[in-house]
Simulated assay, not measured.
Amino acid sequence: MTDTWRDYWELTKPRIAFLVLVTAAFGFFLGGQGIHAPLLFCCLLVGTGLTTCGSSVLNHYLERDVDGLMKRTRNRPLPAGRVKPSTALSMGFVLVLSGVFFLLFTAGLLTAFLALLSAFLYVVVYTPMKRQNWLNTSLGAVPGALPPVGGWTAATGAIDPGAVVLFLILFAWQHPHFYAIAWIFRDDYRRGGFKMLPVVEPDGNSTCWQVMGYLVLLLIFSVLPSFMGLTGPFYLVGALVLGALFLASGLALSFSRSVASARRLLKASVLYLPLLLMLSVVDAGF
């Protein structure tokens, strides 16, 4: 891969795109009680991937100036001058619109609308709000929790209670995950002018309360699939164990208020979600 293409690839935030595709696939699998329409499944992934990558490119475009102020982002393609802003802007719009229209003609109007809504909330609402209010984390968790709903609607054509539960799980999970990141890089966020909670309240009290509150909610939300018949008892036990371990990581941060504890919480969040998803696939109730 040449340096130029590597820069374009970086603009799409491939790791975030991969997570989005995994959760969308998960929603399709649970909603359709298996993957019985492989072509539709592939179309979902293509359209969702295009829209997600385009949203990430537009996020890079809007934050190119502040990215240049922070150590961990100053070498990104736009602040480093390796990609022209106009090129990134065009690329982002083309990807988003291509993904939305592809979903419209393959996965249906509802799934396409959810993808467009997610892109709009992420780019137009969440991105500028990061410099205005610490509630940006909760607002940003909404588009982050929509992909499994889009997968569900692609398989079923409707937003059922199961899709709502998947949304709630992803919504709650993102809070400890991103609060941990904000804690670790709060000096960088301060330089960039981002109003992350650990920045606006340095003592960490509110951050820890938020982390613990959402971890408790996540534990509750995560067991609901078993009570709805989507998963079995093996998943239920596993979800409780994973939730308890995740909660312990949050407690450690609450007591120590250290960067090391925040890193452990971040690692716990990265392990928790794929393990929970794997449990649900292995012990699907159908």
Rank of each mutant, 00 (worst) to 15 (best):
F113W: 10
G99A: 03
S138L: 14
M70F: 09
S138G: 15
A112R: 03
A107Y: 05
S98P: 03
N136I: 00
Q132S: 14
W134R: 03
G150I: 00
L95K: 09
P147S: 09
T111H: 06
V149N: 10
T106Q: 08
L103D: 08
V124Y: 15
S138F: 14
N75V: 12
G140A: 02
L97F: 13
K130L: 10
L89P: 03
N75I: 12
N75T: 15
G99Q: 00
S138C: 14
F105V: 12
G99R: 00
M91P: 07
Q132C: 14
R82I: 05
V94A: 15
A88M: 10
K130I: 08
W152I: 03
G151V: 04
S118Q: 07
Y126W: 01
Y122Q: 08
G150T: 01
N136M: 05
M91K: 05
A119G: 03
R76Q: 07
T111W: 09
L89C: 10
T153S: 15
P79K: 02
A145I: 06
V94Y: 09
P143K: 06
Y122P: 10
P85Q: 00
P85G: 06
P79W: 00
R74P: 07
K71T: 14
L139R: 02
S98N: 01
F101C: 05
P85C: 01
M70R: 01
F93A: 06
A112Q: 05
G92L: 02
A88F: 09
N136S: 13
G92S: 01
V96K: 01
T137F: 00
L139Y: 11
A107Q: 11
V149E: 09
R76K: 11
R76Y: 06
P147C: 10
F120C: 04
L104S: 00
T73D: 03
G150E: 06
S98Q: 01
R131M: 11
P128L: 13
N133K: 13
S98T: 10
P128D: 12
A115S: 13
T127H: 10
L146T: 00
F120R: 03
V125A: 07
M129K: 03
L103A: 08
V124L: 13
A112H: 00
G108R: 09
N133Q: 12
A88S: 11
F101D: 00
L146N: 04
K84M: 14
V94N: 05
L121G: 06
V142Y: 07
A112N: 04
F113Y: 10
L109K: 13
L95Y: 02
Q132W: 13
W134K: 05
T73E: 05
T87V: 15
N133L: 14
W152Y: 14
S90F: 13
G144M: 04
F93L: 15
T137M: 03
Y126H: 04
P85Y: 05
A154Y: 09
F93Y: 11
W134N: 06
S86M: 14
K71S: 14
V96M: 10
V94P: 08
V123Y: 08
L97C: 09
L78N: 07
P128G: 10
L89N: 04
P128M: 13
R74S: 15
P148G: 12
L104H: 07
W134P: 15
F101W: 06
V125Y: 04
F105D: 07
G108A: 11
Q132L: 15
T137S: 08
R82E: 05
P128S: 12
L97N: 07
N133A: 14
G108P: 13
A112P: 07
T73C: 08
L109C: 12
